[in-house]
Nucleic acid binder design. Structure first.
Lengths: 222, 222
DNA sequence: TCGGAACAACTTGTATGGTAGTATAGCAGC
DNA sequence: GCTGCTATACTACCATACAAGTTGTTCCGA
């Protein structure tokens, strides 16, 4: 198997660097700078920037520069709204599956939760990965891969916030408990219960957003 | 105001050409070919391709070629699912606005419907534009521009189908009637009614999909 | 001291040449 | 006639050079 193109690789690397906050919002990214750093030409870098721009992770100002977009509270909240709408619809479908399909999904989710509870407190990155796995599994079970692709894009914006909040975030234990509620509702085959559990869960996730905006004003949009 | 870059312009033009079916699914797009046709260099073309690839309108196979992706029934249906989830949530918010805001929105929607009913039968393109305007207006009224951006991307895939169905589509009069139902529910401030009306509307839109897949098998994925 | 014009040091945008990989048509050999 | 190799004509990919625009600074003059 051959490797992906340099442009695609760069896109991937820069994307995670931005989402995790390694490259901070507002920072300028120069094509030539990145190019020399990664020892490639400007062209692949440019292509990576275009991809990032379409995901609204950077903004390209012609003849001026390319900048990591600052976090917009409005956009993040709006993203949560969309994600909630999608995932609620998905979990309803999941809870309405036939018994054997539900059992198979429950198996996977139970395993995911078990792993989540073993994550050391403070290891945000690991938990976020397992969290993603949990939510993705539900979508995959009802074969909504396309829907998940949409969620995944939105997640990038939300995760930028979540990586920002190491300590002030909602306690992991609480999130795990909510995952259990969702799982139970799916296992019991109760779409309405699953829906409200998922809704609650999403309302929780960005609870600390206003506080973070105060604490790190430089990474938020004016 | 200065014009956008050539790459961005090309992206726009090719996008509409693909969505409207002017460039047919499965067709190969050569960088050099497009470049000579539009009398520009290959570089902007390449950048336009990258943008199109991220919207899943084309697929780039390294060292082989770039092709307009065929329509995937599964993807389109999945897209409808997502779009319905979002627009239902949006219309609920719209119907829950305070009276003056609802009145302002109703004004806009009524105007949009009036224009829709004046479109000559068979003029699909004009109707689809007005249809988009109608749906967008609702999202804009509740300030869900981000949500609309997501819908807009999904719409591209759905519109490819709708442009395919000139005659066999749902009669325009029926769609307009459904728009009226949605409008009435918003005006009356009844979120539940608005929700079910929107849901019905979306169920209708792709009614003719299976028939189209039979009639034009060459533009659909295997 | 203040204002402004020219300049220098950046930035992204576009054009072009060369490279590596893939598919195919045609020909040689069986 | 059929199979397998080879030459060729594509393709997207990457590097490089140049063009065009923006910004900040510096220097000169009022």
């Amino acid at each position: 198997m051959s490797v992906a193109s340099i442009g695609a690789q760069l896109h991937e690397q820069l994307r995670t660097a931005i989402v995790t906050g390694e490259i901070r919002p507002g920072q300028a990214l120069s094509e030539t700078d990145i190019a020399t750093r990664y020892e490639v030409s400007r062209q692949p870098v440019r292509e990576a920037f275009i991809r990032l721009a379409q995901e609204r992770l950077v903004v390209v100002l012609p003849q001026r520069g390319t900048f990591v977009v600052k976090i917009s509270i409005r956009d993040v909240m709006d993203g949560r709204f969309v994600r909630e709408a999608i995932e609620v619809a998905v979990v309803r479908e999941a809870a309405a599956l036939d018994a054997p399909a539900r059992a198979a999904l429950v198996e996977i989710l139970r395993d995911a939760i078990a792993q989540q509870s073993q994550v050391a407190s403070g290891d945000n990155a690991s938990f976020l990965m397992l969290d993603e796995h949990f939510h993705h599994a539900i979508a995959a079970a009802v074969q909504r891969e396309h829907a998940w692709r949409v969620v995944d894009q939105i997640k990038a914006q939300m995760d930028r916030v979540r990586y920002l909040s190491f300590d002030s975030a909602t306690p992991v234990s609480r999130l795990i408990a909510q995952h259990r509620e969702i799982l139970d509702a799916i296992e019991a085959g109760q779409p309405e219960v699953a829906e409200s559990a998922m809704r609650m869960h999403h309302h929780e996730i960005l609870q600390s957003l206003p506080e973070l905006a105060k604490r790190y004003p430089e990474v938020f949009e004016d």
